[in-house]
């Protein structure tokens, strides 16, 4: 298990305190923590459990339930491909395949150099631009499979 540094411990305790260490605020605490650290490893979950006075299993139960929370760090440029229905019928699957091929990783993985991570999500609501891919916060619309390599090159 990854050891937390004392400054990280202080920061997490501070987040918990800002929500009055209340059990009912668990999801808000997790949102804030993930925003600060990027992901929620086991050590972080255990610390939050202790601070809110609930079991680690309860925290893990919530973290693993919601897809927004992640226990693994993302790449420097996180790639999220929309697999909403509108994107699906406009060829999002081919785009996913192309990303997998170009980066040589599976969905949910990070490239060995930590640069890119690949995930799928359900509908960002920009259906007019389908198929849509998010890299970081930037939305790339009307993306054809054969444009994937070119797009990745922009992030080299």
């Amino acid at each position: 298990m990854e050891e937390l540094q004392s400054c990280q411990i202080d920061k997490i305790k501070e987040i918990c305190r800002s929500f009055n260490n209340a059990e009912g605020e668990l999801i808000n605490v997790l949102h804030k923590t993930q925003e600060t650290f990027g992901y929620l490893p086991e050590s972080v979950q255990r610390l939050i459990a202790a601070e809110l006075n609930i079991s680690a299993a309860q925290v893990y139960g919530v973290v693993s339930f919601y897809t927004f929370f992640t226990m693994k760090p993302k790449g420097k440029f996180p790639i999220s491909i929309c697999l909403g229905t509108a994107c699906y019928v406009r060829g999002a699957e081919d785009v996913v395949d192309e990303f997998k091929k170009a980066l040589d990783i599976k969905v949910g993985e990070v490239t060995p150099d930590g640069k890119f991570s690949l995930d799928c999500l359900r509908c960002v609501g920009a259906c007019g631009l389908a198929p849509v891919v998010l890299i970081g916060d930037k939305v790339h619309g009307r993306l054809e499979a054969n444009q994937v390599k070119e797009l990745l090159a922009q992030y080299e």
């Binding site: 697999l83 909403g84 229905t85 509108a86 699906y88 359900r122 509908c123 609501g125 920009a126 259906c127």
Partner: peptide
Amino acid sequence: DEGDPGAFMDRS
């Protein structure tokens, strides 16, 4: 909590 893939009216 609009989760239906392909629906974005609530957000709009």
